[in-house]
Amino acid sequence: MRNIWTIAQREVKAYFTGPVGYVVMSCWILFAGLIFYLILGSPSASADMEPLFRNCTILLIMVLPLLTMRLLAGERGGDQGVGTIELLLTSPITEWQLVLGKYLASMLYMCSLVLVSGIYAVAFRVLGKPDVGKIIGGYVGFLFFSGYVLALGLFFSSLTNSQIVAAVTTIVSSLALWLISFFKDNPSKSLQFLAWFSMLGHHEDFWRGVISLQEVVWYCSAIYFLLFASKLMVASSRWR
């Protein structure tokens, strides 16, 4: 556990001492703020965070890969990375500790983004009468969704030496996983099964203010699977 925490601390520090953390945070505030402005400025504005959550999930797909692209690809040394993977693999830490440490760091950074977005909830509370339960559900879903995209980003970062390739593949695959949800209403059972893998279909309940065990287990399983695959990819560096 200590090793995981040490790696996480190092990575969180790297986010806030380098430009990436500030660029990502600025992008987040800029675009989320614009969405918030558009929602408030519309004639049918209501104290409901659902439209903000819905639009911000697309924003997360674009922004979060910028956080994960350097986590493992950077360690391999491509695209101005530090190239310390050999050092890490020969040090007394396991592949799991490495992967979990990196993932924990990105989640901690993500929590800071969620905290910043809390000002929108406060603004809604001041301006109207929002359904607080719905806001809580939305934020819980936000964390699960981010956790999923970060795990996917970490996996793609473990596959390649290039940070750019890692970021682009994460964005493309996240969008693809997002879009397959449109097969949900297709009469074909196979396409419906395919749509089940989309995170969008598993996210609707959170937006509505419902935390369902089924969806929580789905997100936890997906995150576990992606982290496990990342761990295997790191382990494969030993024999490749």
């Binding site: 359904d131 607080v132 339960g133 719905k134 309940d205 203010g209 419902v210 065990l213 089924q214």
Partner: peptide, 13 residues
Amino acid sequence: GDKKLDLTAGKYY
């Protein structure tokens, strides 16, 4: 499947 927490004010779901 039925285990869920409905946080909405009117327990709509």
